[in-house]
Amino acid sequence: PEAADLRALSRHLYEAYLKNFPLTKAKARAILSGKTGDKAPFVIHDMKSLMEGEQIINCRQIPCQEHQQPQQPPAAFAAVGHADCNMSGELELRFFNSCQSRSVEAVREVTEFAKSIPGFVNLDLNDQVTLLKYGVIEIMIIMMAPLMNKDGTLISYGQIFMTREFLKSLRKPFGEMMEPKFEFSVKFNTLELDDNDMALFLAVIILSGDRPGLLNVKPIECLQETVLHSLELQLKISHPDSLQLFAKLLQKMTDLRQIVTNHVHSIQLLKKREVDMFLHPLLQEIMKDLY
């Protein structure tokens, strides 16, 4: 009976994951390996293709895979020489703002997923806020991994592939921000988790009882323990030959915290350097006094 309960929890979290996260790992890997049968994603590899791809990036609608390659860049962009330094600076900032919009949407997705974890909404409301504040960026980084390979990453719900080299070429500190995520993702992807494993792992991250400022740790740890059991069982079933996968996965949580700390410092640096930069109030809330 206990194992049956753990399997039921696993199914429940997997369903919540599918409901709340539009681009699953299975779908992302199919796009990256060209097995969807649909058009290949639009590739952004330089400033010119970034200008051309902006209209796709800014389209908030979830695609039905059938996107068109952009015909012509909007007139305002077409008139801009991409060699122009100031203009590419503005373009970088606009791209950064698009990333912010997507991040804000991702926070909503993660919040809805968290609410679906049995027992989460019964926790002290202050503790729910704390768990999300500390968990969301870690979750976003984990969710980036399936979208990435060593050469680049899918963005805009899989409609665009942006090359790693291009991201690296952006001016400081933009150019430095994604490289640690690629390094993490390439290693993380070798674990070959599937979407069901991912759903349970995300729940484990959210239910971390050691977040600063938690008021009532015990019920959080109890919930996490159950999800951990469910994850351990799930991994045994989905990866019977992968020894120590459970332990390896838990070790990733330490790496994640370091990445988040560095990410938040980069954002704080950006805020100081870029006079025109606007940080969304929700992201400000999350990052303020985080680490």
């Binding site: 908030r60 919009s101 804000v104 949407e105 926070v107 909503r108 919040t111 809805e112 609410k115 909404v121 409301l125 202050n126 729910q128 806020v129 704390t130 999300l132 504040k133 400022g213 969304h280 109030p281 929700l282 809330e285 999350i286 303020k288």
Partner: peptide, 21 residues
């Protein structure tokens, strides 16, 4: 804490789109 995290708190209480906030 709730006061300092009004939007997060709102998201927890309902599923308002943060983009609309």
């Amino acid at each position: 804490l709730k006061e300092k995290h009004k939007i997060l708190h709102q998201l927890l209480q309902n599923n308002t789109s943060p983009v609309d906030l």
